[in-house]
Design a protein around this nucleic acid. Sequence first.
RNA 1: GAGGCCGUAGCUCAAUUGGUAGAGCGCCAGAUUGUGGAUCUGGUGGUUGUGGGUUCAAGUCCCAUCGACCUCCCCA
Length: 410
Amino acid sequence: MIIPQTPKGFRDFLPSTSLKRKLVLAKIVSVFERFGFDPLETPAIEFAETLKGKYGEDEKLIFEFTDRGDRQVALRYDQTVPLSRVVAQYPELPKPFKRYQTQNVWRAENPQKGRFREFLQVDFDVVGSSSTLVDSEIAQIISAVLKELGFKKFRILLNSRPLLNDLMKSSGVDENLVTGAITSIDKLKKIGIDGVIQEMVGRGIPTEVAKKVIESFQNAKPNQEVQSVLDTLKDSGEDMSSFVFEPTLARGLAYYTGIIYEAEVEGFSAGSVCGGGRYDKLIGQFSGTDYPANGASFGFDRVLEAMEEQGLLPEVKTTTKVLVTIFSKDLVQNSLKVAQELKAQGINTEVYLDTDAKLEKQLKYADAKGIPFAIILGPEEAEKAVVNLKNLSTKEQTQVPISEVITKLT
RNA sequence: GAGGCCGUAGCUCAAUUGGUAGAGCGCCAGAUUGUGGAUCUGGUGGUUGUGGGUUCAAGUCCCAUCGACCUCCCCA
């Protein structure tokens, strides 16, 4: 026998879970569409060279393999790089190109809480404009999504990659060590001043320089880029308490060139819920011409976990409205007809698919599935040309003509 | 990539120094031949994740492997 299990970091979503995921995803997407974004889908597999050299150190986490035609291919690692490929490949797309994308990505990580090898990312990006209006709209959308999902307290951290580099260089960090130093400073809150100094020294940065770096980050002020985004958000009437300049925010991906974002929900510890930023040089790697671009990505599983923890997930077990029971073999036709009529009216209707089951069993089934109504159609109802409609949560039941059932269930 | 901890019935867990596996819930049937979530009675429950090894004897010890969880790393 084959052992029924999924590979490490890969998951099943049973109907009750899948249903919640779909509902939440639809909410997020509705926000994107409200802001004028349209969907895009790209293949799960890209040529390996499309993905390589874009993510920096994390590149080793790409699922890469040789296909049967000896091609080097790789599983989608994020949705930003495929988007960049698409923009370069279809130059006729009107700019600014605003698209959202909700597909799985794969990363060969060691699974942990809120971390999987296959997970859904929810991206939205604007390509073709370097305006600060874009930079602020991205932040605005992150906020709108989190609000739409019901989060009361969250923070959207803002920083700028050029600012990071400037602070490093003006503190005297050797140019070759800047990237490493940025990685270290990102952990300031987590490992403290001494921890960061220790780590920087380990990277070959002199202690005095490391101290200077920390000092300069502690005194850092928003640069013009960040400031104008904050100003625009304020002008748009946003509640500025959710937007925070965070000079130590770094972000791992190598392709960011400007403003960067990260969103965290208060009380949720398993990492940030959304991250993104401006990447003006990435698309140029595919097209020869640079296209300015900016966008962000929600980690769908983390969003769900945070919602779960805060009791924001809807309790839905099924979309089925009514179970039409089957009283006996000779009344099957009656039940089928009723079900047919309900379905024709757009009511989600399930017929019990066994003609020998006792009513008790059929009602138990409806109960277990969370179907709110049951229709019982016995000889008595057949005689009177009515139907017995039972509300399973209140136990109320009434004999009504089918037309009335329809009005009661819609 | 490094380290830790764990895997026993569908689910949650028990099993003394190694002595051949047990409970609750669930499920099925009945009490209740037209009515569910309650109660009672009876029944079903296992190659102890998988493969090796040590031993008279392995759920228990050793090795490998698969998987879950947790640190670190990094990230969504």
